[in-house]
Amino acid sequence: MNKTITTNIIRFILIIAVQVVVFSQITFTIGDVAYIHFIIYPLAILLMPVKTPRAVLLLSAFVVGIVIDMFFSSPGIHAAALVFTAYIRNTIIALIEPYEGYNTADIPSLQNFGLGWFVSYLSISLLIHIFVYFSIEAFSFVYFFEIFLNTIFSFIVSFIVILLSQFIFRTKY
């Protein structure tokens, strides 16, 4: 159990570091409206063990989100989105539960559940997260078109980066 906690904390730190040091520096635009952001930090929450209690997920998400926000100097925006993602994470996992069920200790990774499952898990969670993030950032659905474009483009690049990272670092714990 302690090992799980330690692993997760280390993973948090690594993911936050990569997000902040590498991917926060990369932003490019298409046209005037679409800003492409690499948003990979939800992975920290997505890779927590399958049967993690919701409260733990929420608190972890809040902490990770606030730390990310500190670096983005956007207090609360990432945290709000990530807390939401954490809140619905277990629901998503329950929705796409494979026929044989889950091993409670497992982390929901590519390694443990296979490509097909992981792609659907990651795409659903990440899409929701990015959409919520941009909605909160715009803070008004007046900008729906911008939110929509940002969500689509950022989702594509973030999804590719996260999937590649899962092939490179074969996460088992």
Partner: peptide, 20 residues
């Protein structure tokens, strides 16, 4: 967990509104 979710979101939105 649901209460916690609401509490955390309220905190986040308070931060958002006050500091952005």
């Amino acid at each position: 967990a649901h209460i916690l979710f609401v509490v955390l979101e309220v905190i986040c939105f308070t931060l958002i509104i006050n500091y952005n």
